[in-house]
Design a protein around this nucleic acid. Sequence first.
DNA 1: ATTTTTTTCGCAATCATTTTTATGAATAAA
DNA 2: TTTATTCATAAAAATGATTGCGAAAAAAAT
Lengths: 333, 333
Amino acid sequence: MTLKQLAKKLNVSISTVSKALNDSHEISKDTIKRVKELAALYNYVPNKSALSLKQSKTKTIGVIVPNILNHFFAKALVGIEKEATKNGYQIIVCLSNESLKKEQDNIQWLTNGSVDGLIFAVAEETIVERESSHFKKLLDLNIPFVMFDRVLEDVKTDKVIINDTEAGYKATKSFINQGRKKIGLINCIDNLNVAKLRQTGYEKAIIETFGELNQKLILKTSINNIQDKIKMFLNENELDAILAIDNVTGVIAINIAKSLKFSIPKDISIIGFADSLIARYAYPTLTTLDSRPDLIGSTACKQLIHRLDSNQLDSTFPKLTVIDTKISSGGSF
Amino acid sequence: MTLKQLAKKLNVSISTVSKALNDSHEISKDTIKRVKELAALYNYVPNKSALSLKQSKTKTIGVIVPNILNHFFAKALVGIEKEATKNGYQIIVCLSNESLKKEQDNIQWLTNGSVDGLIFAVAEETIVERESSHFKKLLDLNIPFVMFDRVLEDVKTDKVIINDTEAGYKATKSFINQGRKKIGLINCIDNLNVAKLRQTGYEKAIIETFGELNQKLILKTSINNIQDKIKMFLNENELDAILAIDNVTGVIAINIAKSLKFSIPKDISIIGFADSLIARYAYPTLTTLDSRPDLIGSTACKQLIHRLDSNQLDSTFPKLTVIDTKISSGGSF
DNA sequence: ATTTTTTTCGCAATCATTTTTATGAATAAA
DNA sequence: TTTATTCATAAAAATGATTGCGAAAAAAAT
């Protein structure tokens, strides 16, 4: 059902129908009523493509997620979607699969007028290769975009991150306050900035307290065979605490520690960067640092929509928003 | 950069540029070359909205997911996205959040010409309320759509599901073949058809072997406080096997069983409907029935694109595709 | 009764693209 | 020399919607 068809049935012009539906003062109350009734009857919905074309606004936001199976990103997506829907925006979701090439393709694809703006976390490969030209192209094209969690220093745009350093510091400090002496760190996402920052926080707290860093207490590895590696890590060091800086190894560590007859939290205390949904896979429940992905997502989305609505770049650009992590106690200490 | 602007720079008409870029035989080789060079120089990309409008094709697929935090759906989305991308389609993702109202809103929203077709799993509330009029509206509008995993009997459309009954049966049988006698079942998604079917399979195997069903061995509950409930369930019954028919309780059960000093798989064997990514949260690793969400997703997407391309409904409509589950052995038996 | 004002509505342009039709010139055939 | 054909390109129509402007009609004021 189009305006044209409605107009024909009503014996008025297309523009009258359009104006009536938009409550124009140019149209009489009577006509407006007639038009609206028929439109409702035929379930008329304005065609999205025509609207986008006319107004050069798609009311659509492109979201590029490195890995939707990562619970953090799934939750961030929920936050983005909620905020977008609230403001009358749709989201087009692309998955970069941590690949630079796919990320570039996605951006190329989305800049054909499909979306008004973009929200994304940078793919791991992109960070490793230090490539950012495809993002700078967005700046040239004047397409607003917001980076979240994984951001690039040299791209001047709005960003939303968490206070990773402080989170690592706080978690480590909480171990220290419990009297823990041999505090290990598990890092299997070393390529990412967030990992480096969290580790920095850990190191700061350790050096501040013990004067020096024991490199043997830091397990830097890939996710492959992570269970065996953690087992060895636990066996080789007499740890009484572990900080897991990604969102899966904390849970795995707790389960393995239990199977090795560690008593939790008596013998060993574990903190992970997971959330309650993942933490329930651990028994007793893991203590977690909530990196608040939903808040990050909704904040990023809000920020983008702000730029889209006030289509002028104001003095606040580029804005860096730092979200506070929340420590939430499970049963592990 | 638009056709118009290119045309101006080249001193030719808009139509010439358009035809040149589409390799029309009406245009001389020389002109084609000139046009393409300039288009490449200015990074010209055809405007999506204009294209969609003109061709009444958006090359976009709408996907409605009940809950993206559910690993099954996240993985299904990966399958859908991969297949869509392969065929030059974008996906618009909506989250129904298991709510009927949101699902209806999403469908209303997506039928404004945003998408060529839809893929979705029905929201839990929709199934409980047995509402299907919003899907039937899609049939009236002639918008192709494919349902996956959670489907409605009375909506005549393409569907992709797994052989739930058989999966439940096979899993239970494998316990029986190990000589297990007291086989429990945990069901915390009872509202869903898939749960009923899996349980049917379980019951069939049990009755076939033992003659009768012991209702006490079936834990039907909500996800709240699931850990405590499973603990009680294990304590009150001398189980030697558990079939967890959703994708989280298997992992939880294994961890709790260990904490209760059960030896796995000697004392108790556990099978869950999770996948390897979730199974690694259990130690030793859970044996899983892979419900193959990515295959379901890609199959559903393939099916939809088939309908979109051959825009005639052929004799195969409506097609029901049943995906086989795969049992993959972890360390639990 | 005439002019002015207000109300109500239609025309036409516009967005970026594709596609059908038209145009003018060169070439070939009659 | 005339007519038909081919060729390269331009012009126009169409997709579905919004919107400024102008026109007609109705109402109000003189």
